[in-house]
Design a protein around this nucleic acid. Structure first.
Lengths: 349, 349
DNA sequence: ACGCACTGGGAGAGCGCTCTCCCAGCGTGC
DNA sequence: GCACGCTGGGAGAGCGCTCTCCCAGTGCGT
């Protein structure tokens, strides 16, 4: 209204003065707490409009001890920071990341919350993230922790920060988490491959330091053994497409008569597909390929990937809901929500 | 230390008491402001360690008027929210998003800052984002605004929120921005295609409501005209792989003798490649394909895409630096940083 | 010996909000 | 007619921090 509007944001005090009431009443109207006379309510609303008042959230969180922010922590393995690579490049390039973000937004949309993104890809970054959280910059944390010996979940627990994990930690913690039944996923892949009559089968696993990767592999191995196949060529990959290419190349050289491959994620399966195309192997006729995740990579190339679906978006949304629930009702026991993998049958197997 | 550590976080006051100094002195030590006697400094540090003190950032920002958070706003076109789709699914699935995030982290890493992610994909979400920013939840905003008539940049300017844009707005605003010389990128694609002897060429553009898409197309058209080619079949896509497939299919039906295609991003080029494979067209022998971006999609399939590189990570990092600069020195004039596209020659053209 | 700049620490006033008290006014039951 | 609940508004005490003053002590020049 006046020229001072330019220099200084208006405060509750200003609104109260304009409306001719006390600060407390304005606060009541804004937060919808207790009964306030309709006429006064209207006067306050007009005063707010006239002053262009916007509540200051720092002041608010100082007293409420709530920030209205949730952290989404990507706690990867310690990434070597090469000069030509950008921070977290490989993590963010993975469709998995986008799916998690999408799911988190789905869970957050109903409320007025926004995630603050943190990358904890080194001991230093982890400490900073922890400090940041302890300073009360966020009300809680959602942690996508890949590496088994990641200390962050335990640290968050110790710091008393409400936390939900994407993926179960290797040793149980009293933290809530959402996860996929990865072992079952591996089994599904094995069953499908053998049902298709494949018996000379190999696996491209994820990094064995990652629990999900281990579970997928052991589920696959178990089911294969159930089908009488005990010899299982195996190459460890790092979940990137490039590594899928490398793994497939090495597999092809060592076991030229392979007729089936299970890759622990779609990106590596895509890499395998590319190498197979280079070698003029027909998929699925000569060699069947089955991926994992059902990410956008599955239908990016030709043939479309048959894959074990992991409903990442749903899982991330659920993780968000669980965290919100913990914030709403503190002191509730930790829960684990396990999702079931499903087979998505396309062309590659 | 004591049992009260459990119930109440320690404050400056506590540290001061333990160290036997005043609050002000503790604050000085923590913030490294003014000279403090080394002995006292040490005493304060020990007191901090003993009390497990962590500064409360809400209290701090209340007085400093700084939050230490920057917003990364993805202000897309109004997305229809279908029940089966997750929020922002397509945006987050695009490698572009991950590259932006990676670049932002690169720019933020040196400081202790984390981006808070906001999705402004509807008028309502935009209002919420604006409100959030006006409440002082972040010190500034980085906006990836795609759609031409997106009102958000102007609103942020009006609200006096330090803002940097990824991509120039259609009508100049006094906001800083980083962008690619998209027109030049289109030209590069045209020059390369004609240098390869392709004359029956078509374009798959991005949505013409997006300035970058328009610029790429007009640059391409201009250069083609320079080479004597004035007839240019054109299909508008929406930057997704699926739409690339759809566009290529339609192009192939209408112009079966095409020998070159320019797709305005790699995702659509990848879709085109898949359709060409389905039609048994050899790339690049029968038909050359050139993409745009040089994202991970470029080398995902076979053949590898020849593409016009947009250094998204560098651009996002620069956007972050520009914003930090504006925050450090308020009142500086808005700047525009223009990046040059480069040709990355691979197999598809 | 005195004044004076300079160094380093303390006191205390806020920053803008919430929330607990407290209290005036009013209807109700006996 | 009076005590009593009940409704709705105001006063004011913080939340935990920063930062401006202010002031004591020290070393220096003259």
């Amino acid at each position: 209204m006046s020229s001072e509007a330019l220099k200084r944001a208006s405060t509750l005090e200003d609104v109260a003065r304009v409306a001719g009431v006390s600060r407390a009443t304005v606060s009541r109207v804004i937060n919808g707490v207790r009964n306030v006379d309709p006429a006064i309510q209207e006067a306050v609303r007009q005063a707010i409009a006239r002053t262009g008042y916007v509540p200051n959230s720092a002041a608010r969180s100082l007293v409420t001890r709530r920030t209205g922010a949730l952290a989404l922590v990507i706690s990867g393995s310690d990434a070597p920071e090469t000069p030509d690579h950008h921070v977290g490049g490989e993590i963010f390039a993975d469709p998995f990341f986008g799916r998690v973000v999408s799911g988190v937004f789905t869970g957050l949309r109903p409320l007025d919350l926004h995630p603050v993104l943190m990358l904890a890809d080194s001991a230093e970054a982890r400490d900073k993230a922890l400090t940041y959280l302890r300073q009360g910059n966020a009300d809680g944390a959602m942690v996508v922790s890949t590496h088994s010996r990641d200390p962050l979940p335990a640290q968050l627990l110790a710091a008393g920060i409400p936390t939900v994990l994407f993926g179960r930690p290797p040793t149980p913690l009293s933290l809530s988490c959402v996860d996929l039944d990865n072992r079952e996923g591996g089994r599904i892949a094995a069953d499908h491959l053998t049902a298709r009559g494949r018996h000379r089968v190999a696996a491209i696993s994820g990094p064995l330091g990652v629990r999900a990767a281990r579970d997928r592999l052991s589920g696959f191995r178990e089911a294969m053994a159930d089908h009488g196949i005990h010899q299982l060529p195996h190459v460890e990959g790092d979940f990137t497409r490039e590594d899928g290419e490398r793994a497939m190349t090495s597999l092809l050289r060592r076991y030229p008569d392979l007729d089936g491959v299970f890759a622990a994620n779609d990106l590596m399966a895509q890499g395998a597909l590319a190498v197979l195309a280079d070698h003029r192997r027909r998929v699925p006729e000569d060699i069947a390929v089955i991926g994992f995740d059902d990410s956008s990579a599955a239908t990016a190339g030709r043939p479309h990937l048959t894959t074990v679906r992991q409903p990442v978006e749903e899982m991330a949304a659920e993780m968000t809901r669980v965290l919100l629930d913990h914030l709403a009702r503190p002191g509730r026991a930790a829960t684990t929500v396990l999702f079931e993998p499903t087979l998505i049958e396309r062309q590659s197997a």
